[in-house]
Amino acid sequence: MPPAEPIVPPPPDRVARAAGTSARLTRATADPPWARALIIAAALIFLALFLVIPLAAVFVAAFAQGVGVYLAAVTNPEARSAIRLTLMTAAIAVPLNMVFGLAAAWAITRFDFRGKNLLTTLIDLPFAVSPVIAGMLYVLLFGAQGLLGRSLADRNIRIIFAVPGIVLATIFVTLPFVARELIPVMEASGTEEEQAAITLGATGWQTFWRVTLPKVKWGLLYGVIICNARAMGEFGAVSVVSGHIRGLTDTMPLYIEILYNDYDFAAAFAVASLLTSLALVTLLAKRFLGRRITDAPRVAAEGPGVDRRAA
């Protein structure tokens, strides 16, 4: 017999929260129209000044010398190598951090154990230390003069000044994103459904896969997206471990700096616009996915309001 999920009423705390929201909305609409217009205008002007205009400037500078120069800049072998390395680094770092973030958030919000506070603090460590220090950690560990340098050199394994170092540094700096995004979502969603599932005889794995994961999928997706954006854009940590070998260990951000320092400004902005576009595409993909799933027919009790808010 399938579980009678549709007739489960929404948890009381959710009802309370919804009521609070509508109360606040009522108060906001009571403000005079000119105040609202002022606040909205201020927000829009701020966004335009600090976000839209600089972004647009990147694209203007990229095409300043024509489409031909732009295409040549993004298709030459060094640029292709930088794009490839950036995508590859993100393709390794993001799934790993997705798994780690899920596991960490699940452990922290669903279980009580010794060292839980320590784990929560450690997850924030990459946020707290400068990316340059993150890079230095790997140099101290894997560098030729480092702790493991001698034995790695004997086995002819190269980590820093090579692709593995770049991937490691990227994983380090992007480690908190998924977990940090998931922990509040998991905490807010409570444990009632999981308890119900376990009461009904589900195993831990089934509970996780069929109850917890579907509840937090939007938080997960959002965490993955910002994790990916940072993985592709990271500069400081990667710069320390890269060695800056043209066409070999330059990611897109490092390559942009090289072009800029070569006085090749049009090419620098061309690659910068491409990196920006990659970020914009991820954001658009998120919106597209969000709409598609929200528009799908659903059962009333699932609480479409919650999903719409998340999208």
Binding site: M1, P2, P3, P95, M98, A197, L200, G201, A202, T203, Q206, R210, L213, P214, K217, L220, L221, V224, L289, I293, A296, R298, V299, E302
Partner: peptide, 25 residues
């Protein structure tokens, strides 16, 4: 009630969207 009665088939709603995300990734 045993375990098999909980998930004898994929649940269409959440299973679809989550699966979609995972498959796309």
């Amino acid at each position: 009630m045993d375990i098999s009665s909980i998930d004898p088939r994929p649940t269409p709603r959440s299973g679809l969207s989550l699966g979609l995300i995972l498959r796309l990734t």
